[in-house]
Structure formats: C-alpha cells, structure tokens
Design a protein around this nucleic acid. Structure first.
Ligand SMILES: NC(=O)c1ccc[n+]([C@@H]2O[C@H](COP(=O)([O-])OP(=O)(O)OC[C@H]3O[C@@H](n4cnc5c(N)ncnc54)[C@H](O)[C@@H]3O)[C@@H](O)[C@H]2O)c1
Ligand SMILES: NC(=O)c1ccc[n+]([C@@H]2O[C@H](COP(=O)([O-])OP(=O)(O)OC[C@H]3O[C@@H](n4cnc5c(N)ncnc54)[C@H](O)[C@@H]3O)[C@@H](O)[C@H]2O)c1
Lengths: 227, 227
DNA sequence: AAGAGCTTGGGAACCCGTTCACAAAATCGC
DNA sequence: GCGATTTTGTGAACGGGTTCCCAAGCTCTT
C-alpha cells in the first residue's frame, strides 16, 4: 500500500501558528506544567481552542482524551516539524537602527534563531561591532553565506537598496527572506518572502480607530442616511 | 431613499492591503505617473491585479474603463478611508533597542504616522533623548496620552512587562495597540491589537526551508512511499 | 461613426480556514 | 466495575477571500 508522504499537507494558516504554540509551550513548561489542554494552550497562544485541536491534528494524534497534551512531548514534535531541532542561522543585511536592534536581540536564541552574520554597505560601519557581531561588507556577501552556512536572511536596509540586496542574497543561494523595507520585492518563485511593514500595521490600526471615532460621534447605532 | 452608510463594509483583508496601495501610489506619483492600471498598481504593491480591482471596488468606482485609475485621486480616496488625512500620533512604550530604532525611524512621516512620545520605566533612560524625543516616565503615561492626544501605542518592552503596559495603556484610553513583545495579551474586546513577532516570522520561513531541503534530498519528485 | 483595443467592475465558482458539535476515549470517585 | 466528567479528534456547516471570466464602458484610429 502506498501512503502519500505529505508533511506539507499542513495548511499555511496552521504553519503560521505553530511558532506561537511552541512559544506558549515553552512558557507552560517553565511554569512547571507537564500537561495542558487545548483550552490552556489556546489561552497561552492567544487563539481559540477549536483551532488549536484542528491544527495539532494535522501533525498527528499527540493528545490524550480527557487529559490533554504532554507539554514537553508536543513541543518536541512541533519543533521537529518546523525544523527547530537545531538553530536557524540568519544573516542581517543593514546595520542601521533596525538592523543593530535585531543583531543585539537576545530573544532569538530561545526561539531557535541564531544571528550568524551582519553585513552593511557603509565603510564607516564595516569592521565595527553590533550586538557582538563584526559588521562585514555587503561585497563579501557570497563568502559570508558560504562560510556561515546561513539559510535565512533579514533585509534591514532602506527601501531603495532592498531589491539589489535581495538579488544579491538570491545569487548567494538564500531562499528565505524576511524584508523590513517597505517595498515590494520581485523575486524568483522558489524564493520564500515574508514582509514586515510597521507603518502599514499602524495604518490598519488607524483605520479601525477612525471607524470607531466616526461611529460613536456620527451615529451611535443604525447608521442610515436619507438622501 | 435610504442608503446604508456602511464604510465598514470593507473586508478586513482589503483593509490590510489599503496601506500597501497607498505606498505604491505615492511611489507611482513620485515617478510622475498620472494614471495607472490595476496591473501596474498590483505590481507596485506586490499582489495580483484581480484583487486590486476587487479591493478598490469596495471603496467605490474610481477607475475609468480602458484607462485606469487617477493616481493622485485614488491616493486621496484611500487616504480618506484609512483616516490618513492627518497624521496618526503614536506613543512608544519602551526605549530599548527596538523602541529607540522606532523612535528614530524617519519613514513614518511619509506614511502618515507621527511619534508623539516615548516612555520607559528605567530611571536611567527617563530624561534622555532618543530620535529627538525626550523619554518620559511610564508613571506619567496617563498625562502623556492626555497631553499629546495620541490614539495609537506601540509596545516595545520585554514580554514580562507587556501585559502591565497594555493594561496601563487601556486605562489611559488607548484603543489601538501594536505589540512587538512575543506574548499573548489579554485585552478588552473593544481594544484593537496587532502583533509583530519577528522570531515567529523566521520560524515560518524555517519551516518552508526545512521542507525544501527534505524534498530535494529525500525524494526529488512524486513523494510516495511504500509500507 | 464605427470598429478595434484596453481596462474596469462585479457575478459566480472555487478554495481555504474557522467554528460548531459530538462521538470516542481517557480518568476519577465511589 | 460503572457512571460521571473531561477533553480530544474530526466530520460537517459556515463564512470569507481569491480567482476566473466577461459584459460594459472608455479611448483611439480610421
Ligand atoms: N527603524 C525602524 O524602526 C524601522 C521601522 C519600520 C521599517 N523600517 C525599515 O527598515 C529598514 C531599515 O531601517 P533603519 O531605520 O535601520 O535604517 P538606517 O538608515 O538606520 O539603516 C540602514 C542601513 O542599511 C545600510 N545599507 C544601505 N544600502 C545598503 C546595501 N545596498 N547593502 C547593505 N547595506 C546597506 C546603510 O548603510 C545603513 O546602515 C528601512 O527600509 C526602513 O524603512 C525601519
Ligand atoms: N530588539 C529586537 O530587534 C527585537 C526583535 C523582536 C522582538 N523584540 C521584542 O521587542 C521588545 C523590546 O525589545 P528590545 O530589544 O528593545 O528590549 P530592550 O531590553 O532593549 O528594551 C526594553 C525596554 O523596555 C523598558 N521597560 C521594561 N519594563 C517596562 C515597563 N513596565 N514600562 C515601560 N518600559 C519598560 C526597559 O527599561 C527597556 O528600556 C521585547 O519584547 C522583545 O522581545 C525585539
């Protein structure tokens, strides 16, 4: 009999939540909890319990009915699925305000991420140390990638440089990029891109704030207009 | 005749993309483009054109068939919808690595965001200047919020402090929070929360990288196993 | 004025994700 | 043991979002 070996059968929405479960489980473990229910885990991760059970069912049946999930075991299972069995090494491109904050960030270790290198184009920054990492030249990017064996990259350069940096990263063999520059990058299909746009997040919040304000002053309820 | 005045009829997914269109339109305007097609706008925003047209149709019929959209006019329409007619003022809580990077960020202005205040709990930081803002005490938060009239807040404190900060923000009247601390916040229903978790983003990228690696070494294609 | 060529707006189908609801399985108290 | 209680795992219903597709409407050429 043939089984379709499809660990990719995990839906994107679920994959996006696995890191939250992992963080929540680490917290629960630290609190000394040996087992937890989907309800507990849901509260710790900030989602609802039905979705926790549905998500976990995509990985296998690791729970015990009437009891819940073994915290340590479940954490190790999720860690295996997301590939957090050994730290993901990442290169940070751009050692400015944001890049150096990221380079100095102490929270990555516990989440299975390790900053392996920091590069920049500014000659005044090259050779200096940020967050314990000596800044290297962007011109050496290919060497840096090869030497450190990083597979993930963070772009923290101005938007104008981002596309060029992305192209250089791809040329150096990187296939996973987290971009903080507020610009749309054009990349080959086999490159995985995620975007963080802080200003956009604030504008989304602004939209809802705006709506709230309009609703409460304009028309407390109903909101019908005659014309 | 009664029209249902329902500017809230805009789906969440669309709202989340409006800031991207706004940014893309600003870029196109700067390039001297007076009109653009949904195809152009889609490319500039990094989405597909069908969804651009669908999204824009939720705001009204601002395009011209056979021609496209007037860049300046469309930008002003979207700006009105998202409430970017005047800058959104934001308070940053936590003047550490990340908080000071955000406080110094020059890119907010063009996106309709203005940092109005920075607060921290560390006595050594209070009174110092980060990004042109004098750091004030978290104890004065209520005053700061009242004086500056901010309506948005960014949490950039360690996870352990985040819930306390969030509670204080809500008590001070803030209803929109962007949280960078990797922790689930428990907040009243009428408070709007968005979360940025950099480590989680990297883990999501890691999952796919992991998959790619497994697929290329394990089984180049097909991926069926006999048992 | 009419036809060719573009591009929007939106109906409809489709797909994915969330929520609901409950049987199955485990533990606990007696 | 056995019924009460807890909690998982999952089918089914639901709802939203995306994609497909094309008629309608605009410009330009002839
Ligand atoms: N600072 C923030 O809090 C913040 C917030 C939101 C978004 N961003 C975005 O993040 C990015 C970085 O912001 P920042 O405030 O750190 O900017 P910054 O100007 O402080 O730093 C940018 C760094 O990138 C380097 N750089 C420029 N071109 C380069 C290239 N081709 N190769 C390598 N390095 C190059 C510069 O030398 C500089 O050190 C920007 O795109 C910005 O829009 C920053
Ligand atoms: N630095 C990064 O690049 C980065 C990346 C991802 C996530 N984060 C998260 O962002 C948050 C901030 O990170 P950071 O690196 O800037 O940390 P940091 O330690 O450099 O700064 C935290 C600041 O918060 C202040 N603070 C602590 N408790 C407070 C309170 N109750 N009220 C007001 N201020 C308080 C501290 O005095 C300190 O100045 C953390 O939750 C971190 O996990 C940071």
């Amino acid at each position: 009999m043939t089984i379709l070996r499809n660990p990719a059968g995990i839906p994107d929405a679920t994959v996006a939540r696995l890191p939250l479960y992992l963080r929540a489980l680490d917290e629960l473990a630290q609190q000394g909890k040996g087992v937890c229910s989907s309800e507990h885990l849901a509260a710790a991760a900030g989602v609802n319990s039905a979705i926790v059970r549905k998500d976990l069912s995509h990985l296998g049946s690791y729970g015990t009915r009437g009891v819940g999930y073994d915290v340590a075991f479940l954490a190790s299972q999720i860690a295996t699925v997301v590939g957090r069995t050994q730290p993901w090494e990442v290169v940070i491109v751009g050692a400015g305000h944001l890049g150096s904050a990221l380079a100095a960030y102490q929270g990555f270790g516990a989440r299975g991420v390790k900053v392996a290198a920091v590069v920049d184009a500014d000659p005044r920054l090259i050779g200096t140390t940020v967050g314990g990492h000596v800044v290297r030249s962007i011109d050496e990017l290919a060497d840096v990638v090869e030497q450190t064996g990083v597979s993930l990259a963070i772009i923290a350069t101005p938007p104008a440089s981002a596309q060029g940096v992305a192209d250089a990263l791809v040329a150096a063999g990187i296939r996973s990029i987290l971009n903080f520059a507020p610009t749309a990058l054009r990349l080959p299909d086999d490159v995985d891109l995620r975007q963080v746009d802080v200003a956009a997040e604030l504008q989304i919040l602004g939209y809802h704030a705006h709506r709230r304000a309009a609703a409460s002053s304009d028309a407390p309820a109903g909101e019908a207009v005659t014309s």
